[in-house]
Structures are given as structure tokens and as C-alpha cells.
């Protein structure tokens, strides 16, 4: 084997380390943030308004959050990356954020919005009867949520979550657009520097193996939760 091969492999692993770091940090921040956004969009805080004889309930928090989620889900993640990285500098002449921080910020916001909708779907899919059963047994609201509803929500959201998380693995490659040294960026650099195309193609192996592992992990979680039906 010639030395260029090992140089390529080494830098691919280096790039993949950045990819993994972005993936892990996004999950760590976006999973809880998604729950907060979910509660915000389900919030019923507000007031009644009479409009043309029809009484309507206005919930400002929920409306605001829903608009935000609409914007984030309605625009390309790539565009959001560019806006977060270049936007503050162009608009307010602020210093640029470090590239990785900008990417992480964009990913966390974007994925938190998607997660929030998955959470919401999960929470709203729990039948009223479960809450009512808790109520007639004298349980408090928080006892009902944490002891009755939550585990059922978890079970219901594992399949859509795994889908979204596997998408995230591959979306990390978008950070290449603002020159974060993740695996695609590293592989692509060999086209110009050494005239090699195979490093780019071989990145697929990294993604495939990692997504394969995640699939196995989520399969195991689903099996672990299969002792009850909801």
C-alpha cells in the first residue's frame, strides 16, 4: 500500500470524527429543546376574543412557536446554515461565529423543531382515557404525565425519532457548505490536491456503517419496549 492511501484513510477518519461530534452534540441539545418547543406549541395560555360574534381562543405563545416551527421546517437547512453563519456579520457587522458553532446552532434549532412535532404527535396520540383513569385514581397532573403518559409517548415516538436521527447523520454533510472539516469536505479535498475521486465515494461506507449501527440500536430499543402495547 502506498502512503497516500493511509493519508486518505486517516483524514477521512478525522473528518468523520467531526461528523460524529456534530451529530452527538446536535442530539444532546436538540432532544430536550424539542420538548420545550413542543410544550410551547401546545401551550393553552392566552385569552378569549370575540371576533364577529364568534368566540375564539388566542394563544400567543403557541402561535409564536408555531410560526417559528413553520419557518424552520419550511426553509432549507442549507439556507439556514448560511444565514446563521454570514447573516449576523452582514446585517450587524458582528464577528463571524466559529464555523462549527454556527453549524451546531443551525442543526440544533432545525432538529429541535422537527423533534418537537414528533413529541407533539406522541403526546396527542395518548387517549384521553389514560389521563382520566389517572384522575379518578387521585393522581396529580405531574404524576399522570410522568408515570402514565410519558412511557407510552416514548414507545410511540421511537420509530419516527429513529427515522429523523438517521436523517441527521447524513444531514451533517451540509456543514461542508461553510467549510467545516467534516468527512465529505475532507474527501473532496483530495480531488483537487491529488486528483483522487475514490476518497469521496468511500465516505458512503462510513455513513452506511454508522446508520447500520443506529438501526440495530433502535431495533433493540423497540424490542426492549415491546413488552407492552399502547
Amino acid at each position: 500500500m502506498d502512503s497516500i492511501f493511509w493519508t486518505v484513510i486517516l483524514s477521512l477518519f478525522e473528518g468523520f470524527a467531526t461528523t460524529l461530534k456534530l451529530f452527538a452534540l446536535t442530539l444532546i441539545f436538540a432532544l430536550p429543546l424539542g420538548l420545550v418547543i413542543c410544550f410551547g406549541s401546545m401551550s393553552k395560555i392566552g385569552f378569549n376574543l370575540r371576533l364577529g360574534g364568534v368566540r375564539r381562543r388566542i394563544c400567543p405563545i403557541s402561535a409564536l412557536i408555531k410560526t417559528f416551527v413553520w419557518i424552520i421546517r419550511g426553509t432549507p437547512l442549507m439556507l439556514q446554515l448560511i444565514v446563521i453563519y454570514y447573516g449576523p456579520g452582514l446585517m450587524f457587522e458582528w464577528d463571524l461565529l466559529p464555523r462549527f458553532t454556527a453549524v451546531l446552532l443551525a442543526f440544533v434549532i432545525n432538529y429541535a423543531c422537527y423533534f418537537s412535532e414528533i413529541y407533539r404527535g406522541g403526546i396527542e396520540s395518548i387517549p384521553r382515557g389514560q389521563y382520566e383513569a389517572g384522575q379518578v385514581l387521585g393522581m396529580t397532573k405531574s404524576q399522570i404525565f410522568f408515570r402514565v403518559v410519558l412511557m407510552q409517548v416514548v414507545k410511540r415516538i421511537v420509530p419516527p425519532m429513529s427515522n429523523e436521527i438517521i436523517t441527521l447523520v447524513k444531514d451533517t454533510s451540509l456543514s461542508r457548505i461553510i467549510a467545516v472539516y467534516e468527512i465529505i469536505f475532507m474527501a473532496q479535498s483530495f480531488i483537487k490536491s491529488a486528483g483522487l475521486i475514490w476518497p469521496l465515494f468511500s465516505t458512503a461506507i462510513f455513513y452506511l456503517v454508522f446508520c447500520g449501527l443506529l438501526t440495530i440500536l433502535f431495533g433493540a430499543i423497540e424490542r426492549k419496549l415491546s413488552y407492552y402495547k399502547v
Binding site: 387517549p127 382515557g129 389514560q130 382520566e132 383513569a133 384522575q135 379518578v136 387521585g138 393522581m139 396529580t140 397532573k141 402514565v148 412511557m151 407510552q152 414507545k155 407492552y228 402495547k229 399502547v230
Partner: peptide, 25 residues
């Protein structure tokens, strides 16, 4: 107060048409 309602509720028990058992327990 929610706590007051909860206490009052305990005078009654209710068995539902659709059982509403907690599936994970």
C-alpha cells in the same frame, strides 16, 4: 385548587367502558 378536587374525587371510583389500564405496568 386541584388538590381539593383530587381529594373529593376519591369519594368515587370509576370503571371505564374501555378499561383504560396503564399498558406499561
Amino acid at each position: 385548587n386541584e388538590a381539593v378536587t383530587r381529594r373529593k374525587r376519591l369519594h368515587f371510583g370509576l370503571v371505564f367502558q374501555s378499561f383504560n389500564l396503564f399498558p406499561q405496568y
